[in-house]
Amino acid sequence: MTRRKLTSDEIELWRKVAKQAERLHPEIPQTVHPTTLPKPTPKKLPKPRIETFEVGQNQPSKPSTNRLKPSITETLRAAPVQMDTKAFGRMKRGKLKPEGKLDLHGMRIDTAHPALVRFVLTAQAQGKRLVLVITGKGKDRDEPGPIPTPRGVLRNQVPHWLSIPPLAQAVMQVTPAHISHGGDGAYYVYLRRVR
């Protein structure tokens, strides 16, 4: 949008107004006509170079690895140790003998959860410290499908059940069992003392 030129009447009106107006800062010298800056000359930009493009040229050479959720066994092994470190090491090596055992093989979730709650709370009331909960490794799915499904429903649910009320107050440590006690198909549950 271009500015329009002032007419001679408008210029004369402006001069009358300017003579009658008081200066805001009289100590600053007044110039008759402000100097105008010269119009800038446009700089010529270099012509863009057209590059050839190949499909996949920006793709990284090594594909990134998928960051899948770690398995329940890896999560439990990485959990901080809550119990005595020496006893924990002996328990992981299978040197501590469990004082009680619950086998959940063949049970469904609706029967396994109450059985686990009953077993753990009873064992704690009896003063037992280490119990073994056998879940089994679970069956492989017939059809893998697009969504990865963890193997073994009880194997994945039991650690969760042990970490929520009413069992959370009774359980001190959960870790996968030694191979002599069932390996990845069983869990050592170390209980707190009743006070």
Rank of each mutant, 00 (worst) to 15 (best):
T85A: 11
T175V: 11
R108V: 11
A125T: 00
G89F: 05
A87H: 07
A125P: 00
D110I: 11
K62A: 03
S163C: 05
I50F: 06
H181F: 08
L76K: 05
K47Q: 08
A177E: 11
T85Y: 12
R49E: 13
T52L: 06
P166D: 12
A177L: 09
T111L: 02
K101H: 04
H105R: 09
T75K: 10
I147S: 13
K97A: 10
K128E: 07
T111H: 06
Q126R: 09
P159K: 06
T175Q: 14
P150Y: 08
A79G: 05
T73Q: 09
S61Q: 14
H105L: 04
A186H: 07
G145M: 08
R93T: 05
S61R: 15
A87R: 14
I109G: 03
E54P: 11
I50G: 05
Q57F: 01
I134F: 03
R93Q: 10
T65K: 14
V189F: 12
G152D: 02
G136Y: 00
M172Q: 15
L104Q: 03
I164N: 09
G136F: 00
R141C: 09
S163L: 01
I147V: 15
P63N: 08
P46F: 01
Q169T: 15
V55W: 11
Y187L: 06
V117G: 00
P80C: 01
Q82R: 13
A123I: 01
N156Y: 08
T73E: 08
G94I: 00
T135N: 02
V153I: 15
K69Y: 13
L130S: 04
P144E: 15
L121G: 04
Q57G: 04
T65L: 13
G152S: 03
A168I: 04
M172L: 14
P80K: 11
I109T: 10
T52C: 10
A87M: 14
T175S: 11
R67P: 02
Y188T: 02
K69D: 12
F88Q: 04
A115R: 01
Q124V: 03
R49D: 12
R49N: 13
F119M: 02
H181I: 10
P114A: 09
L130R: 07
K128F: 08
M91P: 05
R67S: 07
F119S: 02
D140L: 15
R129T: 04
H160E: 13
P150L: 12
A115Q: 05
F88V: 00
A125H: 05
A123P: 02
L154S: 08
K137D: 12
P48Q: 05
K97H: 07
K62Q: 09
P63S: 08
S61D: 12
V174W: 14
N156A: 10
A170E: 02
A78G: 02
I147Y: 07
K47T: 14
R118C: 06
A87Q: 13
P148K: 12
M83V: 04
K86S: 12
H160A: 15
Q82K: 13
Y187E: 05
R93C: 01
E99R: 01
A87E: 11
R77W: 12
K95R: 10
P48E: 03
R151G: 07
V133Q: 07
S180G: 12
G185N: 02
R67T: 00
Q169D: 15
P63E: 11
T75Q: 13
Q173A: 05
K137E: 14
A115G: 00
I109S: 06
G152N: 04
P176V: 05
G106L: 02
L68N: 06
R118K: 13
L116A: 01
N156S: 12
G89M: 11
P46Y: 01
F88I: 01
